[in-house]
């Protein structure tokens, strides 16, 4: 379990272990054991939530496939039917006042007048379009959930960071949509980088949620802003998470990466978010995580990862590539 190693690796635990060595009191041992246990429990919880999400996403694939296909079929069909109806409209409007004609087309007229056909013809395309939009939203969420809950987190993979970020933003929408707008500015020349995508998703999620919380604490009437930017800097890739939240006071600057350090109430904060981020970025990926913050204005977290771009390996071809190849 990666989070278990994280505990023994983070700075404060290192000092804890160090002091245990010199002067191992029972209380300290118990405290560090409890910390380990809680972190392990948290990691297991995250893992099972991830598995559950992957399972649900998979179950949704099939129904959303045919809901989308059927709705598309209805849309095309109704467009064709509307064309037919328009020519009937036209024909009926230009009938001669001839008795025989009137007689033949009386049933058509009656059928036309038996319900509010104008209303139906206007509403059907909108109903279909809105359904298509809903189906596309569900499809997008399902795709993001699958990327997000990637089961194979144990192996290094060549990944497009921009689309990884995109899926984290989609999955976390409920956390920020009431308090912030999320803006992205992605480098379009970003090569795939070798990383543990499931773990990076966790980092991105933690940083987005922290930004949203910091914005919420300001209790402003207007929406705040979370801006996520990717850029290349030499042989590094930098991902910035900028928020217009409360900022981090100088007094706690040095503690935010400590495990269990939180300023949030019970149920909202566990104090593990940034400790986990630190472990994943620094220990697992050899990167850096830092922040700039101005109290009352906002915070920017900078995540820096080495850009060991991998040779374009045919086996890493994904759906997106096979789509673009055909276009």
């Amino acid at each position: 379990m990666s989070s278990l190693t994280s505990v023994s690796n983070t700075s404060s635990d290192a000092t804890l272990a160090h002091s245990c060595e010199l002067n191992p009191t029972n209380q300290e041992l118990i405290a560090s054991l409890l910390a380990l246990e809680s972190q392990l429990a948290q990691a297991q919880k995250l893992e099972s939530v991830g598995q559950l999400a992957a399972g649900i996403a998979h179950e949704l694939n099939t129904p959303i496939q045919f809901v989308g296909d059927n709705t598309r079929f209805l849309k095309e069909s109704f467009q064709a039917i509307e064309g037919v109806l328009q020519s009937i409209d036209h024909a009926m409007a230009s009938f001669p006042e001839n008795e025989a004609f009137q007689e033949i087309f009386k049933p058509v007229r009656d059928a036309y007048q038996s319900f509010d056909i104008a209303f139906v013809r206007e509403e059907i395309p909108m109903a279909i379009d809105q359904t298509l939009q809903g189906a596309e939203n569900v499809a997008r969420i399902v795709r993001a959930m699958k990327v997000f809950s990637h089961p194979g987190t144990k192996e290094l993979q060549a990944v497009d960071l921009n689309s990884l970020l995109e899926s984290t933003i989609t999955v976390s929408r409920n956390e920020w949509k009431y308090c912030a707008l999320v803006e992205t500015q992605f480098a379009n020349n970003l090569p795939k980088i070798l990383c543990y995508p499931g773990e990076l998703n966790q980092v991105f999620l933690n940083l987005i949620v922290n930004g949203a919380h910091a914005i919420q604490s300001r209790r402003l009437d207007t929406l705040g802003r979370i801006k996520i930017q990717t850029r290349i800097s030499g042989d590094l890739v930098v991902i910035d998470f900028e928020d217009t939240g409360t900022g981090i006071p100088d007094a706690i600057r040095n503690r935010v990466f400590d495990p269990f350090f939180t300023t949030k109430g019970v149920g909202k904060g566990t104090g593990q978010g940034l400790a986990i981020c630190y472990n994943i970025i620094v220990k697992m990926h050899g990167g850096r995580i830092e922040f700039d913050s101005v109290e009352g204005k906002g915070t920017v977290f900078h995540v820096t990862l080495p850009l060991e771009s991998t040779n374009s390996d045919r086996s890493t071809t994904t759906l997106l590539e096979s789509e673009s190849r055909s276009s």
Partner: peptide, 27 residues
Amino acid sequence: TGRHNMTLSKRLRSLGVEAILEKPVSF
């Protein structure tokens, strides 16, 4: 397919698959 990962995609390509699309796929 509904479930898709790189190990699987490698295997499929070696079996001569031309394209792999992930459900839900648009028409």
